[in-house]
């Protein structure tokens, strides 16, 4: 891996997104709007709101990072720049890590805005160490970026990337404890949710933010989420040049 190339790729990703003002606004404004709707509609049901808000933080990071990476990488393929990159000495690792660093910045920026808004404006309970929350979100970003690159291999256009949302993202929102706690779901659905990375992120985010627990309490969840990240990264590295 070449450090200068990796930094150049992440700089380029950041510039592309920041020059696209609508996308940038969408990353920040859309989650705040959704969070406001949820917050003000559940203003009298604090218990539910306190549980949903941390989980939504994970949902937004997964959803937007997956979508942005998928579409960006698809463009890279369709406009021929990936082919052009493939004939330079750039390695798979340079590409993957470059993309990861670039989108990590947006995921963290988005998380900081949502977290600030949720805690300061909405009446959401917040306990626990903030860097523990961000560490969980970093792991989730790795999962989302790798998944986005992987999925873009199977899409021929941007519309097809969007079609993956109901298959990959929506089931995770319903089955990973965002709306209903995993323990309250039917046995079959609970077992299915084991294969969804968001489940582990939601468990940790709710545990840290709502119950003030530490990451040390979530050894298994960290290992499983990191495992998903590694598996998807390997998958993405195998398909990244195609």
């Amino acid at each position: 891996m070449n450090f200068d190339r990796t930094i150049a790729i992440s700089n380029r990703v950041i510039r592309q997104v920041t020059k696209d003002h609508r996308s940038l606004a969408l990353i920040i404004v859309a989650p705040v709007l959704v969070m406001s709707l949820v917050g003000f509609s559940l203003v009298d049901q604090e218990d539910i709101l306190n549980r949903i808000a941390p989980a939504l933080l994970g949902v937004f990071v997964l959803f937007f990072t997956f979508l942005l990476t998928g579409v960006s990488f698809l463009r890279e393929r369709s406009q021929g720049t990936l082919e052009r990159l493939n004939i330079t000495p750039v390695s798979r690792a340079d590409l993957l890590v470059g993309y990861l660093f670039g989108f990590l910045l947006f995921a963290m920026l988005q998380s900081a805005v949502i977290l600030g808004y949720t805690v300061l404006v909405l009446p959401v309970l917040y306990q626990g160490a903030i860097w523990h929350v961000f560490l969980v979100l970093v792991l989730l970003t790795i999962v989302a970026v790798s998944l986005g690159i992987l999925v873009s291999t199977f899409a021929k256009n941007e519309f097809q990337v969007v079609q993956f949302i109901p298959i990959i993202i929506v089931p995770q929102i319903f089955l990973t404890g965002v709306i209903v706690p995993v323990e309250s779901m039917p046995w079959v659905l609970e077992k299915i949710s084991i294969v969804f990375p968001l489940r582990y992120a939601v468990e940790m985010l709710v545990g840290i933010m709502l119950e003030g627990r530490s990451l040390v309490d979530f050894g298994t969840e960290i290992i499983v989420l990191a495992g998903f990240g590694i598996v998807f990264l390997i998958g993405a590295s195998l398909t990244v040049r195609r």
């Binding site: 380029r12 510039r15 592309q16 020059k19 406009q79 990159l85």
Partner: peptide
């Protein structure tokens, strides 16, 4: 790789970036 220059049929450039940003980026690659 670094001894060959390739101009594909598609322009294969980053549309959002400026001319110099594109050329700088590929120079670093």
């Amino acid at each position: 790789h670094d001894r060959i220059g390739y101009m594909p049929q598609l322009n294969a450039l980053y549309q959002e970036l400026s001319i110099e940003e594109n050329v700088h980026f590929f120079a670093r690659m």
